[in-house]
Amino acid sequence: MQRSGAAMAWNVFKFCTALRGLGSIMILLVLAIVGVSYYTIVIAIYGPALLHTGLPDSLAFLAVLLLFHFLLGMLLWSYFSVVLTNPGSVPPNWRPVMDEEKGDMDPLMSSEYEGPGLGSNRSTMDPANPRIRFCRKCNQVKPPRCHHCSVCARCVLKMDHHCVWVVNCVGALNYKYFFLFLFYTFLETILVTLSLLPYFVKFFTDGEIPGTPGTLAATLITFILNLSFALSVLGFLIMHISLIAANTTTIEAYEKKTTREWRYDLGWKENFQQVLGRDKKYWLIPAYSDEDLRLMPALQGLEYPTRPDLDVLRGF
Rank of each mutant, 00 (worst) to 15 (best):
R3T: 13
V12P: 12
R20S: 11
R20Y: 12
G21N: 10
G23E: 10
I27V: 14
A32S: 11
S37N: 03
Y38R: 10
Y39S: 09
I43D: 02
Y46F: 13
Y46C: 01
G47K: 12
G54M: 07
G54C: 04
P56H: 09
L59K: 01
A60Q: 05
F61H: 11
V64L: 15
V64M: 14
F68T: 10
L72F: 06
S78G: 15
Y79F: 14
L84G: 05
T85K: 03
N86V: 08
S89C: 00
P91L: 09
P92R: 11
P92L: 09
R95N: 10
P96H: 13
E100W: 05
E101H: 11
E101K: 13
E101F: 06
L108H: 12
M109Y: 14
S111P: 01
G115I: 00
P116Q: 08
P116V: 13
P116H: 12
L118I: 01
L118C: 03
R122T: 00
M125H: 04
D126A: 09
A128C: 11
N129H: 07
P130S: 04
P130R: 11
R131A: 11
R131C: 08
R136V: 00
C138S: 05
P143R: 02
P144C: 03
P144E: 07
H148C: 02
H148L: 04
R154Q: 07
M159F: 02
H161K: 02
H162K: 00
C163M: 05
W165T: 11
V166Y: 00
N168A: 02
N168K: 02
C169H: 01
Y175W: 02
L180S: 01
Y184N: 02
T189G: 14
S195D: 07
L196Q: 02
P198V: 10
V201L: 15
F203L: 14
T205C: 13
P213H: 01
A218Y: 05
T219Q: 02
L220H: 10
L220G: 07
S228F: 12
I238S: 10
S242A: 15
S242Y: 01
T248L: 15
T248G: 15
T250H: 10
E252T: 01
T259D: 04
T259E: 12
R260M: 15
W262H: 14
R263A: 03
L266I: 04
L266C: 14
E270P: 02
Q274V: 13
Q274N: 09
R278M: 04
K280T: 06
P286T: 06
A287Q: 08
S289L: 08
D290H: 06
E291C: 06
D292A: 06
L295K: 15
L295S: 13
P297H: 10
A298S: 14
G301T: 08
L302P: 07
E303N: 09
E303A: 06
T306C: 07
R307Q: 07
D311T: 07
